[in-house]
């Protein structure tokens, strides 16, 4: 689909926009995994992007999981089937949901035009993404300590008409008791608009 009706060199196609969103999610999720201390810090390596140094997991299984999930998500984003991506962090033993990072997706512009493009400069989008990632990194300042062994999962909220790929399944939404919610900045490719927010257990 990419490059079908490119008006000028810098235009972002629908596919390109989906790629930007997926790349952001890859960095964002890795950053969260590191910042929240879900995996040992020695598993992470610094990678430069968006003018930031982001620690990316080097664990092959985590990388594989994220790759499969985000590749699948990419297709759904192009199809405009995704409403929300939720990164659920839960206690391994009690299976309690400790924290949930929501990435709400909104679609902008003409939703029927498959060859939609965006004129927004990539640099500006990257700056917006950088601001969100900075907020994610600084969220440790107020988020409570995850004082237990935790695992993460990614849930994708889609339309009900998507075809279930193999090895995928329906799950239950993750609710948090006594939740507190903090919204981060949004970024916008003028095709996809992504709002990031974190919901966490309020300890009182």
């Amino acid at each position: 689909m990419a490059g079908v009706s490119v008006k000028n060199k810098s235009a972002i196609t629908l596919k390109g926009s989906a790629d930007i969103v997926c790349e952001y999610l890859d960095f964002g999720i890795n950053s969260i995994l590191f910042q929240r201390g879900i995996y040992p810090p020695e598993d992470f390596k610094p990678v430069e992007n968006y003018g930031l140094t982001i620690l990316m997991s080097q664990d092959s299984k985590i990388k594989e999981f994220l790759k499969v999930t985000l590749d699948q998500l990419n297709g759904w984003l192009v199809d405009r089937a995704v409403k929300k991506i939720a990164l659920v962090i839960s206690n391994v033993r009690t299976l309690d949901v400790m924290e949930r990072w929501d990435f709400n997706v909104e679609y902008e512009g003409d939703t029927t035009d498959g060859a939609q493009t965006s004129e927004k400069p990539l640099k500006q989008i990257k700056n917006e993404i950088r601001d969100v990632l900075k907020q994610i990194a600084s969220s440790v300042a107020y988020l409570p300590l995850l004082d237990c062994l935790c695992s993460f999962d990614i849930q994708i909220y889609t339309n009900d008409n998507v075809k279930l790929p193999t090895e995928w399944a329906d799950t239950e939404p993750a609710h948090i008791k006594n939740a507190q919610c903090v919204k981060m900045r949004t970024f916008n490719t003028q095709i996809h608009k992504l709002e990031t927010m974190v919901t966490y257990k309020n300890e009182e």
Binding site: K61, Q72, C150, Y157, T158, P173
Partner: peptide, 15 residues
């Protein structure tokens, strides 16, 4: 009722 919540079944390992 018109939405599905999907998740990849091969989960990432825990720490």
């Amino acid at each position: 009722n018109k939405q599905r919540i999907l998740a990849y079944q091969k989960k990432a390992p825990t720490a």
